[in-house]
Simulated scan of single mutants.
Amino acid sequence: MYCRLAQYPISLKHLQLALTMMREFGNRNNEAETLKALAELHYKIGEPDQAMKYCEQVLAITTELGLPLVKQCEEIQLKIQN
């Protein structure tokens, strides 16, 4: 929600907290979703290198677990590369 309102610092804080929680709980599916959201956010705020790092983590998890986020993450990567 904060991201849609362009309140990126608040979004970043909440997403980082969510990522920590997902990792602590061992919830890999939601960890991947959170990493994807972080990748999108970093892309929006002009930090493509950080966005790419998050995408790489998403791809590793989605490949391992067979999650359907691969295509979405690859789309983010294409945006970054162009």
Rank of each mutant, 00 (worst) to 15 (best):
Y2A: 04
R4S: 12
L5H: 08
A6D: 14
A6R: 15
Y8N: 07
P9T: 09
P9H: 09
L12D: 07
K13D: 14
K13E: 14
L15G: 02
L15M: 10
L15D: 02
Q16N: 14
Q16D: 12
L17D: 13
A18K: 06
M21V: 13
M21N: 08
M21P: 01
M22D: 09
R23D: 09
R23L: 08
E24Y: 08
E24R: 12
G26V: 08
G26M: 08
N27K: 06
N27R: 07
N29K: 15
N29L: 14
N30H: 13
E31N: 06
A32P: 02
E33M: 11
E33K: 10
K36V: 02
K36R: 15
A37Y: 06
L38T: 02
A39Y: 01
E40S: 03
E40G: 03
L41Q: 03
L41V: 05
L41K: 02
H42K: 05
H42S: 04
Y43G: 02
Y43P: 01
K44F: 04
K44A: 07
K44I: 03
K44Y: 05
I45M: 09
I45T: 06
E47K: 09
E47D: 10
P48N: 08
P48W: 03
P48T: 06
D49P: 04
D49V: 13
A51C: 08
A51P: 02
Y54T: 02
Y54D: 04
C55E: 00
E56D: 13
E56Q: 13
Q57C: 07
Q57H: 11
V58F: 01
L59N: 02
A60C: 11
I61C: 05
T62M: 02
T63D: 13
E64L: 15
L65P: 04
L65H: 11
G66Q: 09
P68S: 11
P68T: 05
P68E: 08
V70L: 01
V70R: 00
K71F: 03
Q72T: 02
C73T: 00
C73Y: 00
E74L: 03
E74S: 01
E74P: 01
I76T: 01
Q77C: 03
L78P: 01
L78I: 10
L78S: 11
Q81A: 15
Q81E: 15
N82E: 15
N82K: 15
